[in-house]
């Protein structure tokens, strides 16, 4: 029998590091992107991946209240994306 709990603990740490590297790759698109919409899409993707890192860290460290922070972060990321896209489309906020 393999000790899967220990293996999963390492797997979650490695997964958090890999997601962080993917965030850097996405940041490259946010820096290069020829249009503004490219940058907004890249920032939206970075928000989703940051949320994943927060939940993985909550599991690794055993701090369950990090999940509430992750929920608030998801809401803020969504509202930011909607607001910026609306501003790009209409030219005004609201």
């Amino acid at each position: 029998m393999v000790d899967l709990t220990q293996l999963l603990d390492y797997a979650y740490q490695v997964g958090a590091i890999l997601v962080m590297l993917m965030i850097f790759l996405s940041l490259l698109r946010a820096l290069l992107g020829p249009t503004v919409q490219d940058r907004v899409a890249a920032v939206n993707i970075i928000g989703t991946k940051t949320l994943l890192i927060i939940t993985l860290i909550a599991e690794v460290y055993g701090h369950q209240y990090f999940l509430d922070i992750a929920m608030v972060y998801a809401l803020m990321s969504f509202i930011t994306t909607i607001g910026v896209a609306k501003y790009l489309e209409k030219g005004v906020l609201g």
Binding site: T35, Q37, V40, A41, N44, T48, L51, T55, L67, A70, M71, A74, F78, T81, I82, A85, K86, L88, E89
Partner: peptide, 23 residues
């Protein structure tokens, strides 16, 4: 949280795509 992402992520992409199309 997964259900929330399942709802909001396509919505955000749709809004960005609409903004890009109208631009």
């Amino acid at each position: 949280l997964a259900l929330f992402i399942l709802i909001t992520n396509p919505t955000a992409a749709h809004v960005i795509a609409q903004a890009a199309y109208k631009a």
